[in-house]
Design a protein around this nucleic acid. Structure first.
Length: 203
DNA sequence: GTTATGATTTACT
DNA sequence: GTAAATCATAACG
């Protein structure tokens, strides 16, 4: 893409105290990994905000602090990776300052660079939508696993670039996926996606 | 020490 | 449409 900006985001970018705003701003950004010598990039097209203070769906609800979610209390710009259903690695971007346990779950990407290694990791012969559509799928395609838990997003293995500007009118807002157990907080409109983008996991 | 379960995906019927 | 896969972590005893 000619209008893409490949500048790596600075750590200060991640420190905003509005996790909703961060989730929206992350749309259009490029998530990049360099693992096993393969550089891979994908444009973020779907995100969900999780707020530590007032959100039953969040692992840090009610100021719960455990070994798993400890990194969410760190300052913004860290990676929060965790294993779900024993099979899938889910990748989150930690935001806000130290002590505020906010994070943004990356739910879907549009491949930008490195289709070959992505397909190899996903065990696919040709690119299909499910290559990077869905939180578990994209982590596998990017090569993200538990060993990246707590890594800074300004390093040489995982980082985020400015990517493309997504116009306000192209941003869709809806409820989050898979958080029915969270009662009324499941109704919060904290899922953001790029409209008319085929890589979004659910409409 | 044991048990229950999930911010999901995939392969079936 | 429904169900199985599969394990780190949290909650409990």
């Amino acid at each position: 893409m000619s209008n893409a900006n490949t500048t790596k985001l600075d750590i200060s970018w991640y420190l905003s105290d509005s996790v909703e705003e961060m989730a929206r701003e992350l749309l259009g950004k490029y998530l990049c990994t360099n693992i096993d010598g393969n550089i891979v990039k994908g444009m973020i097209v779907e995100t969900e905000a999780y707020c530590g203070r007032d959100d039953k769906a969040c692992h840090t609800n009610n100021n719960r602090r455990t070994k798993r979610n400890e990194i969410m209390y760190a300052s913004g710009g860290h990676a929060y990776v965790y294993l779900c259903y024993g099979i899938h690695h889910l990748f989150n971007v930690v935001t806000n300052r130290e002590g505020y346990a906010d994070a943004v779950l990356i739910r879907a990407l549009e491949p930008v660079l490195g289709m070959e290694p992505m397909m190899l990791r996903r065990n696919m012969i040709k690119p299909e939508k499910r290559l990077t559509s869905g939180p578990g799928a994209l982590s596998q395609a990017m090569g993200i696993s538990l060993k990246h838990y707590g890594q800074k997003l300004i390093g040489d293995e995982i980082w985020i670039e400015k990517g493309q500007k997504i116009h306000e009118k192209q941003v869709g807002v809806t409820t989050r996926v898979g958080v029915q157990y969270a009662g009324e907080d499941a109704l919060k409109l904290w899922r953001f996606y790029v409209k008319d983008n085929g890589w979004v996991s659910k409409i």
